[in-house]
Amino acid sequence: MSRLNSMMRRLAAQAEGLEWGRDLVADLEGDFLDMGLGNGRTYDHMREIAPDRRIWVIDRALQCHQSCVPPEEDFLQGEAEDMLRKMAADGTRVALGHYDFGFGDKAKDVAEAARLSALIRDIMLPGGVLVSGQPLEGFEQVRGPSTVAPERYHFYRT
Results as ranks from 00 to 15, higher is better:
E81L: 07
G30A: 10
G144F: 04
P145D: 02
E73V: 05
R10D: 11
L84P: 11
A107H: 09
H45C: 09
T92C: 07
K106H: 14
L136Y: 03
I55F: 08
P70Y: 11
R115D: 12
I123D: 08
Q14I: 11
M46D: 04
V129A: 06
A107Q: 12
E140S: 12
G40M: 05
E137K: 10
L11P: 00
A95I: 07
Q63G: 03
I55K: 09
L84R: 05
E151V: 07
R157E: 11
M83Y: 01
M8P: 02
W56V: 05
G40W: 10
P71A: 13
F32C: 13
T92M: 05
D90S: 09
S2F: 03
G78S: 09
M87K: 05
D82L: 11
D105Y: 06
L37T: 10
V129W: 07
Y156L: 01
D34E: 15
S2L: 02
L4E: 09
L130H: 00
L28R: 07
G128R: 06
T147I: 10
S67I: 02
E29C: 01
L125S: 12
M83F: 01
D82W: 00
C64V: 08
M46Y: 09
D27H: 08
L37W: 12
I49S: 00
V94S: 00
L24E: 05
L116T: 01
A80Y: 14
T42F: 02
D23K: 14
N39A: 13
D31C: 12
L37G: 08
F103G: 12
D34P: 02
A107K: 11
F155R: 01
P51M: 08
L28C: 09
D109K: 07
R85W: 05
E112S: 12
R60V: 12
N5M: 08
E81T: 15
D59Q: 03
L130D: 03
T92N: 05
P71T: 03
R3P: 00
R121A: 14
R143N: 10
A89N: 02
G36N: 09
L37C: 12
A12Q: 13
L28G: 09
R85S: 08
E137A: 14
G30I: 07
A111G: 04
W20L: 10
A118H: 15
D31L: 05
Q66T: 04
M35F: 04
R10N: 05
C68M: 06
R47Y: 05
R41P: 00
G21V: 06
E29F: 00
A111V: 09
L76E: 03
M35T: 00
M7G: 04
S132V: 02
A12H: 13
L4D: 06
M46H: 12
P150R: 03
Q66D: 13
A111E: 14
D105E: 11
F139M: 10
P71R: 13
M87Y: 05
V148G: 05
Q77K: 14
I55L: 03
I49T: 00
R121K: 15
L28S: 04
D122W: 01
D105V: 12
G127E: 02
E16P: 00
V69I: 15
G138K: 11
G21E: 04
A149R: 07
M87L: 14
R3Y: 03
F103C: 10
K108L: 14
V131K: 04
G30H: 06
L24K: 15
K108R: 15
G21S: 08
V110L: 11
S117F: 02
F103E: 04
S146D: 15
I120D: 02
E151N: 07
H45F: 14
